[in-house]
């Protein structure tokens, strides 16, 4: 019994089908609970007023936008090294979720920036980096969509993901070099004094857990759909061979 058994489509379908409802319930509870707690049970900030509550969507989506790309990188590496098809399909399935998270982070950032900084958009390094990340997601998904042969698409997108990751990190440093920004530092870290206070931190942790679980649910559902599509192709191919 090893972890790699779940890379077999059959095993993956059985296991993911069994755990999916539980994850869905947990994701719903954590996301809704965290947001209700955050929106209605926390006081307005003494400086930022009620707009601070955008943090409960902004920070989790921004965190997931980056982590989903990291997950795609790991999944691509597993595909390249071990040739597990489910891994390649999981990377494909994750991309639109990551794209959506990036969009949410950009949108909530703009609505937060307007009252705080007086502008919808600022070429701040963090904002700029997310815009670049958005373009990376677009290119990755467009390459998947453009290639007919599934294995070729999996291989080429994996190469793009590896190279793109390196350039995404380079872009982050280049953008920092190019413009120092307005954006505040990390909202949550273990050793910083400028962290948000506990009254915001606890619901924020819950929202982050909720967004993470939401991603797991969407990832499992989308991967299952991709596996079904591949099965349809495999069955069609078999039918053609039987006819021929």
């Amino acid at each position: 019994m090893s972890l790699w058994e779940y890379a077999n489509p059959k095993k993956f379908m059985a296991t993911s089908g069994a755990v999916l409802p539980w994850f869905a319930v947990a994701a719903g509870l954590a996301t809704l609970g965290g947001m209700i707690w955050g929106f209605f049970a926390t006081p307005p900030d003494y400086k930022q007023g009620a707009t601070v509550k955008i943090i409960f969507i902004h920070v989790p989506s921004a965190m997931m936008a980056i982590n989903i790309w990291a997950m795609m990188l790991v999944a691509s590496l597993i595909w390249v090294v071990r040739r597990h098809h489910v891994s390649a399909l999981a990377a494909k399935a994750a991309a639109p979720v990551g794209l959506a998270m990036t969009l949410i982070a950009l949108f909530t950032g703009a609505t937060w920036g307007q009252p705080m900084w007086g502008t919808w958009w600022e070429w701040d390094p963090r904002l700029t980096s997310f815009l670049i990340l958005f373009l990376f997601y677009l290119g990755y998904m467009a390459l998947w969509a453009a290639i007919d042969s599934p294995d070729t698409a999996a291989d080429l997108t994996a190469v793009l993901c590896l190279v793109g990751s390196v350039f995404a990190v380079l872009s982050r440093y280049a953008v920092n070099f190019w413009n120092q920004g307005l954006h505040q530092g990390a909202s949550l870290s273990l050793d910083k004094e400028e962290n948000v206070s506990d009254v915001y931190a606890y619901p924020l942790w819950l929202c982050m857990a909720g967004f993470f679980l939401l991603f797991v649910v969407l990832l499992l559902m989308r991967t299952r759909t991709e596996i079904r599509l591949r099965r349809i192709k495999a069955l069609e191919a078999r039918a053609r061979m039987t006819d021929a």
Partner: peptide
């Protein structure tokens, strides 16, 4: 000629059996 039963890459044709 490959038989139809020959494994498809990735085992997708067996995924639901």
């Amino acid at each position: 000629k490959a038989r139809p039963a020959t494994h498809a890459p990735g085992g997708f044709d067996e995924a639901f059996q």
